[in-house]
């Protein structure tokens, strides 16, 4: 009896966390999925009405803008952060004496809240007093830089702030990857007189494919969940020019009182995340078992 009890202890200690995850992750996803199939407005209603909320979503111009923005913001944010991160990592990998200091400088934005980042860049890009005024003060009187109040350009302002925040992190990932490449191969290539850029493009970068993949996953995940940055920088505006699915969901849930739309938009966000993450997780787990 005592031995049996002894064997149950680990299960009993793990149980509360497991139950919590079951309810608060899986149960809640189920609840949101269910609500997304109803006509719920201000209050939840539980009688199913098929895909009506998803049809409304597809018909809503604001959602359309949000998805377009996600695609545009996502590709630029991921693309530029990867390029910049890789470039910085390669530059830093050239035996720089003050590498530690530079690394600290490149990476510190990652420690800040997106709200802080958004607040800072909102001020820098302030049309009347920020960069625009600064450059005009240098004598370029016709200089214009009003991205954050321009509906066509505001989303690029979000990209700039996002890249500023996340690119240092990509740099850290790539730098760790560069350091783990087998030095013997590189020495052999150098002895053979192969030029540096060829060594990078033909030997080092291909061996870092897994790091490209994880950087991509992390950045994509950040892009889809982006909420605070937009709230702080543009508030989703002008109008709803910089709405992303996350801000759309929040607006529907907490200011428009349309929880059917909130639930269905959240489900679409989850589907996008899983379309990216699940194949990756699957291959990771399989690679572990082999």
């Amino acid at each position: 009896m005592h031995a049996w009890l002894e064997r149950q202890i680990p299960k009993m200690v793990l149980a509360p966390s497991f139950v919590a995850i079951l309810i608060f992750v899986y149960g809640f996803i189920g609840w949101t999925a269910w609500i997304s199939l109803t006509r719920s407005k201000l209050l939840p209603r539980y009688d199913l009405h098929g895909l009506i909320q998803y049809k409304r979503l597809l018909a809503a111009p604001r959602w359309d803008t949000a998805m377009d923005n996600l695609f545009l913001f996502g590709s630029l944010f991921i693309g530029i952060s990867m390029l910049l991160g890789l470039g910085l990592a390669i530059l830093l990998d050239q035996r720089i004496r003050i590498e530690g200091v530079l690394r600290t400088i490149y990476l510190y934005p990652m420690a800040l809240s997106m709200i802080v980042t958004g607040t800072a860049w909102k001020w820098i890009m302030n049309p009347g007093l920020g960069l625009e005024a600064m450059v005009r003060g240098w004598g370029f009187d016709s200089f214009r830089f009003s991205w954050i109040i321009d509906p066509d350009m505001a989303i690029y302002a979000v990209v700039v702030a996002g890249v500023w925040q996340a690119s240092g992190f990509v740099m850290a990932l790539f730098l760790a990857g560069l350091r783990s490449v087998d030095g013997e191969i590189i020495k052999a290539a150098q002895v053979d007189g192969i030029p540096g850029w060829r060594i990078y493009s033909a030997i080092i970068l291909p061996s870092m494919a897994p790091i490209f993949l994880s950087a991509f996953i992390v950045l994509a995940h950040l892009a889809i969940k982006s909420f605070d940055l937009v709230v702080a920088l543009t508030g989703g505006g002008p109008g709803y020019a910089t709405d992303l699915p996350a801000t759309y969901m929040y607006a529907m849930a907490f200011s428009r009182g349309d929880i059917g739309q909130a639930a269905s938009s959240a489900m679409v966000m989850m589907a996008v995340v899983f379309a990216i993450v699940v194949p990756y997780l699957y291959s990771e787990l399989r690679a572990k078992h082999d």
Partner: peptide
């Protein structure tokens, strides 16, 4: 695995029920 999976969800999907 079930816990790991929970790390990836966008929190929007649990916001209303929470």
């Amino acid at each position: 695995s079930a816990m790991l999976f929970g790390c990836f969800i966008p929190f929007q999907v649990v916001l209303l029920p929470m």
